[in-house]
């Protein structure tokens, strides 16, 4: 089971009232390589991966939910005090018509999240390479999001999330190495 902890993993500070960014940030909420897709991808793959890397998939999958909550916090803060006119000016008129201020799992172009974003092949190497690719794509998306804002506080939180993709990618690469080992021998690094 999961236990909720009433705090964010990293402080989210949004200093500029720039509703436009909410439309772009939602990519990492309900997009193909967003945090929801990441969490569900790893937690789903853990059932059918060799035992020595289950723990890693479990733990990275869990951390992704903390990142999902950070993205939600950004979107929430950027939209909660926006008028319908401001929502419309930010390109969120259609979102407002559909959802008011409710968050929704769709990408920056408004396409709803779909399970086909999550690959689960069952082959451990194929799945881990998929995970590495997902981390690199998420890293790149954070770069494009950082490019799209001049709010240094928002950039700060996005840079934290981008760095986490780098570390997760590293760990998945190490997981591949673990699966390449000939035997279950104690490894000396």
């Amino acid at each position: 089971m999961w236990i909720y902890e009433k705090k964010l993993q990293y402080p989210v500070k949004v200093s500029k009232c720039d509703t436009r960014m909410a439309k772009y940030l939602i990519e990492q909420y309900g997009g193909a390589d967003g945090e929801l897709a990441a969490a569900l991808r790893y937690l789903n793959q853990r059932y059918t991966i060799p035992g020595k890397v289950i723990g890693l998939l479990n733990d990275i999958g869990t951390e992704e939910f903390a990142h999902l909550e950070m993205i939600a916090t950004m979107v929430y803060k950027l939209t909660k005090d926006a008028t319908p006119e401001q929502m419309e000016a930010a390109g969120l008129g259609a979102h407002y018509a559909n959802h008011d201020k409710a968050l929704f799992y769709n990408n920056a172009a408004g396409v709803p999240w779909t399970a086909s974003y999550i690959q689960a092949n069952g082959d451990p190497i194929a799945d881990l390479y998929e995970d590495i690719a997902a981390e690199e794509k998420a890293r790149a998306t954070y770069q494009w999001l950082i490019d799209l804002t001049d709010d240094v506080d928002l950039q700060d939180s996005l840079k934290f999330l981008r760095e986490r993709e780098v570390v997760h990618s590293q760990r998945f690469r190490e997981a591949v190495e673990m699966l390449k080992e000939e035997r279950d021998t104690k490894k000396v690094f």
């Binding site: 890293r139 780098v166 570390v167 990618s169 590293q170 690469r173 190490e174 190495e177 690094f189």
Partner: peptide, 10 residues
């Protein structure tokens, strides 16, 4: 990024 180069973390 550095993960492309390091290999297994020492």
């Amino acid at each position: 990024p550095p993960n492309l180069y390091l290999g297994y973390q020492p």
